[in-house]
């Protein structure tokens, strides 16, 4: 009996002392500023102003999320409210509380917007906003804004050309960009706080209507920088997902306002 108890204790300790503790800062500071977005704030306003913020360097992993549901049983897949998650929620996990060792370090997917928001809130953080995400993702390894670089674009488009059926890389495995942030491209789609604000028409061909200015809020309906397909596709994906939906290709990371309070 004793060896078994010791073993269980060890396992317990391992669970506690495992991957980086939540207290450690998982994010980097990004100054933000004026940013020309694919999704203009208003019909005649192409520039978004992004306040300084902190962004997680890596995606939230299955292990991170498991730690969360262990302390918050209402977010386990056998207990989660139907309003907050659909049947796909955490389907890839081997049990209601354990993802399984095979995928432990991979980014958590099959999480809904509600679940992702709750996770970030439990850390005193929030989901990144679309402009924050877009600004961080515009960077390559060497440049703050690589969006006009065809090679950078093609590299991103290459991800769309691969099947979703392969195994995901472990979190933080992709090279850091200019800001030091990883995994923004080539891994998964990511939830944002204002996923419900994409306001994109279900028929993408309605974009760019010349009478834009007559439409209230059409800035959100008309995507600029038509050659920035990589971003367009992200917005298309986000706008197709309801808040309770989950997908094997959708994960998330957290952000906080920068400043005195975190």
């Amino acid at each position: 009996m004793a060896p078994l108890i010791s073993l269980l204790a060890l396992v317990g300790l391992a669970g506690v002392a495992g991957p980086p503790a939540q207290a450690a800062d998982p994010g980097v500071l990004i100054a933000g500023g004026r940013f020309e977005s694919v999704l203009p704030p208003a019909p005649d306003e192409k520039i978004a102003v992004v306040a300084p913020f902190r962004l997680d360097v890596a995606l939230v992993s299955n292990t991170d999320f498991a730690r969360f549901v262990r302390t918050r049983p209402e977010w386990r897949r056998n207990q989660v409210a139907g309003l907050f998650a659909d049947e796909g929620y955490l389907r890839q996990w081997s049990s209601d509380t354990e993802p399984g060792t095979a995928i432990a370090r991979q980014p958590v997917t099959y999480v809904s917007w509600f679940a992702a928001s709750a996770y970030c809130e439990s850390r005193g953080a929030r989901l990144p906003r679309w402009y924050e995400w877009e600004l961080a993702a515009a960077a390559s390894a060497t440049s703050r804004d690589a969006r006009r670089d065809p090679a950078w674009r093609q590299q991103i488009l290459d991800w769309y050309s691969t099947s979703a059926r392969g195994a995901l890389p472990v979190t933080g495995a992709t090279p850091a960009n200019y800001y030091g942030v990883r995994d923004l491209h080539g891994v998964v789609w990511e939830w944002v706080e204002d996923a419900g604000s994409m306001l994109v028409s279900d028929d993408s061909r309605e974009q760019g209507d010349p009478n834009r200015n007559r439409f209230c809020g059409s800035g959100a309906l008309s995507l600029e920088q038509k050659e920035n397909y990589a971003m367009m596709m992200r917005i298309a994906m986000l706008s197709s997902m309801k808040a309770a939906y989950s997908s094997g290709s959708m994960g998330f990371r957290c952000a906080t306002d920068a400043g005195l309070h975190r």
Binding site: D202, D203, S204, M237, S240, M241, S247
Partner: peptide, 13 residues
């Protein structure tokens, strides 16, 4: 509208 496109935008799963 859209030949159905406006009514069939579907996320994976």
């Amino acid at each position: 509208p859209g030949g159905g496109a406006a009514s069939s935008f579907t996320a994976p799963g």
